[in-house]
Amino acid sequence: METQILDWMAQTPLAHAVRNISWLFAVCETVHFFGLSVLFGALLLVDLRLVGLWKLGSGRAAIAFTYVAMIGFALNLISGLGCFSNNPASYWANPIFKLKMGLIVLAGLNLLWFELYEKRKIALLATGDATDLETRIVASLSLLLWVLVIIAGRFLPVTATGSS
């Protein structure tokens, strides 16, 4: 099952393109670095406001930048799939890759909590308003998890087998 999915992912048009066009893998990686900067920069504006480093700006103003974070994430989902498709079996065999995906899942669950329980409260915040402890924890976790995702990404070559 696992092998079949990995084999299939190695045969998609994207996979063929990344393997056949010499510069495409490098472009995917480069877009990945740009995308992570967009994602993390937007999260700084949102999460540092919610953590309480500053209380300037309404909750809605901060929420506007969550959409910028999503654009960064979308860029990295696509570019990351491009890198992965180059050699799915090699990535899947890499323990740090699985750790990175696990961290992204945790960040996703944290985002789900944000969307379900925090966003309504945040939308009511006026400039100067403090956030509650729960919101501060969710915002802190968001920053922590994405920093760990970036670090894990940079450590992928350490445990990589074969060519990726």
Binding site: L36, S37, V38, G41, L43, L44, F65, V68, R154
Partner: peptide, 14 residues
């Protein structure tokens, strides 16, 4: 270096 890049470049992009 990647984390620092995300902070500096990300903040400048915003």
């Amino acid at each position: 270096h990647a984390v620092g890049m995300a902070v500096v470049a990300g903040a400048m992009f915003m």
